[in-house]
Design a binder for these strands. Structure first.
Lengths: 254, 254
DNA sequence: TTTAAACCTTTACGTTGCGTGAAGGTCAAT
DNA sequence: ATTGACCTTCACGCAACGTAAAGGTTTAAA
């Protein structure tokens, strides 16, 4: 089946302007241009547009989507199952928001009381997600287009010994961090050693390292409950402590 | 509890820039300005910000949110239970998308086949929602700020006799439409009578009527599966037929 | 056959919701 | 008294299109 801009637009629920824009920025080129200069799309483009819309739904920026779907190593099947995971995540977040609104209603009716902080639960998660998206873009801008793809490759191509090493590193990090936390001084020797170990651990996953990126990740550890829970498991406040240590280590504040 | 920009920003997960912008456009003014010119927010503002974020989550534009939350007749409790409804709707839509991605995976693995149209299920619903938002904005721009609120009031304040009348109207509409559909001519007398009845029915819900708005709604009947299912129940194609009749009746095409 | 409606094209300016400096004042702690 | 983390007001930048404007193409009806 072949489609003109409007046909494809109607099919997919996007405007003709959007399709022209996607052509313009090189994210979705038509299969061919007919003799009158009309854009003609085919089966490949239909499937690609679907992928694009999935990524968009997940809040990914178009330039990032472009890199992903146009990458020669793009694996549509893998992308789809990741979409599934992410959409399920998104639903969990939505459930939090629904819980929030229901709690707020109960609170307004005087049935329960609610702290200010609780009133924004479910919103924050979204912010972390946005940061992750933005983050990927920044790396891309600073270090070129292939870094993010390479990052994934790096994990996949890790040998057994590398895997062992990284595991040992993360154990070292956790014990050092636990000891450092007891000193209470994020600028102290132990804390700075922990930050250093964290950097080493990080370089297993990133090809390029930068202070900003490191500091950014540290902040994420505090913002994202999953990470906070992981680091705070034994001693609450550890995630924050690690962040402060990294701030000092990298010389960054924000 | 009192908050400065950064405190409130951290609490709610928004940037300080956002809070200043919300002040600038008049959507969320601080409770007071202290002697140094700092913005100070109180309890009222915390709750209002929560409301704003709920509306934002639902994809409502800021100028519309402004109208809503600043309206003297704004009912926070009612708004919250509407948020709940909408969030539940949103979750249903997400479920559709998840079903879509799972079907696509199955299709790629050759376990099922999938029509192009099916590949975009779950996305389209969102488009309708966006149209509704845009739509409300257009009405607001054209007829002033109170029309949308009044529209809700109108439904709530309907007397029993009015309710009976509107019920009768919708029955008339359906029978006339069914007959008109058999003629196959949306410009014909019967079809135009149906369009007229539809207009009368509409004026029970809208205080202000316009050809554009009417035509817009007609298009929605075709785009939104819930409406299509309703009108096509006995004779498939009726929703489209009604749209065409309304296009002719109103003299609109798009 | 012509003519109107419904397509398509490119070009180009407008919009929303902020991000991101710059330049400078305020406050708390050392 | 100085440093660093706050705060302020401009003011420009940006993404992802929306929305004409001006004009060529296709289709179907008169």
């Amino acid at each position: 089946m072949e489609y003109t801009v409007q046909k494809l637009g109607l099919l997919a629920g996007v405007s003709t302007r959007t399709l022209r824009y996607y052509d313009e920025i090189g994210i979705l080129k038509p299969a061919r241009i007919n003799s009158s200069g009309y854009r003609i799309y085919g089966q490949t483009e239909v499937d690609k547009l679907q992928q694009i819309l999935f990524y968009k739904e997940l809040g990914i920026h178009l330039d990032k989507i472009k890199d992903i779907v146009n990458s020669p190593s793009f694996d549509a099947a893998a992308a789809l199952s990741e979409h599934r995971e992410q959409l399920l995540d998104k639903r969990l977040q939505l459930d939090k928001l629904i819980a929030n609104v229901e709690k707020t209603i109960a609170s307004n009716e005087g049935r329960i009381t609610m702290k200010d902080k609780e009133k924004f639960e479910g919103f924050k998660q979204k912010m972390v997600q946005d940061n992750e998206n933005k983050y990927g873009k920044e790396i891309r801008e600073k270090y070129g287009d292939d870094v993010v793809n390479k990052s994934n490759e790096k994990v996949l191509n890790m040998t057994q010994s590398e895997h062992d090493e990284v595991t040992k590193l993360s154990v070292d990090l956790l014990t050092t961090l636990a000891e450092a936390f007891k000193t209470g001084d994020p600028a102290g020797k132990l804390a700075q050693k922990a930050a250093e170990l964290h950097k080493q651990w990080l370089t297993f996953y990133w090809n390029e390292y930068s202070n900003e990126a490191h500091a950014g990740l540290a902040q994420m550890y505090v913002d994202d409950e999953r990470f906070t829970a992981y680091y705070d498991k034994d001693q609450p406040g550890t995630a924050k402590f690690l962040r402060d240590a990294i701030y000092i280590y990298t010389g960054m504040k924000q």
